[in-house]
Amino acid sequence: MTLFEVRDLRAGYGKVDVLFGVSLTASKGELIGIVGPNGAGKSTLFGAIVGTVGLRGGSVFLDGEDISGKRPEDIVRRGLSLVPEGRQIFSGLSVIENLTLGLTGRRDKHGEKGALERVHDLFPVLTTHRDHQAGMLSGGQQQQLAIARALVADPRVLLLDEPSLGLSPTVVKDVFDRLIAIAESGTAVVIVEQRAHLVTRLAERTHVLRAGKLQATLTKEDAADEAKLTAAYFGNSGE
């Protein structure tokens, strides 16, 4: 059953068009990857979905409801959260304050305590640093905080923009293990990555975004085939 669908999305800034009709879907519990080179439009795609970049056409559906063109604060309340590129945690606020802000986007206000407890189970290190300034955390811990902050809103769909950025390989593996666990608990997870190999092996499907269009879609099996992956990523073969 399709939980999340992007249909023929077009977007851009000022006079420049960036996305030329992108479509993709994700079901409950699926982990979907989007890879592509710098400037392919990956962050613009997420921005257009969550309402921070103006749409030029197309629609976004969440559980059958058309959420395209809604404001970011309303979209998160409908159950779609974004972990933005560069994490964007509030470095001057404490860890718990960052998490508390994440609660703002919840639909039901009763489960707040439970949501915080679940996050502490998933990311115990955040409990240790509960009252520390978020800016003092290491890069990996900050990424965990950014994910946790999105999770406490109980999203049905979780978007992550370059979660591996600036993290060491072991930390990246750690973060991706949590993401798999989150998907397994029933959330649809969509990950944008410039480093394709990080997601292709894990994702149900990996879309290759280049020059504002999805150029290819790879399955887990395709991803094992190095040649096929390279071809899709750099676009020197047919589709």
């Binding site: 921070t52 970011p72 604060e73 001057g92 606020l93 802000l101 703002t104 999105a150 809103a153």
Partner: peptide, 19 residues
Amino acid sequence: LQLRAAASDFQTARLLGVR
């Protein structure tokens, strides 16, 4: 808390649901 968050990064605050 929302005022402080918005003062440092309004966009991200909105992404978290701050109206």
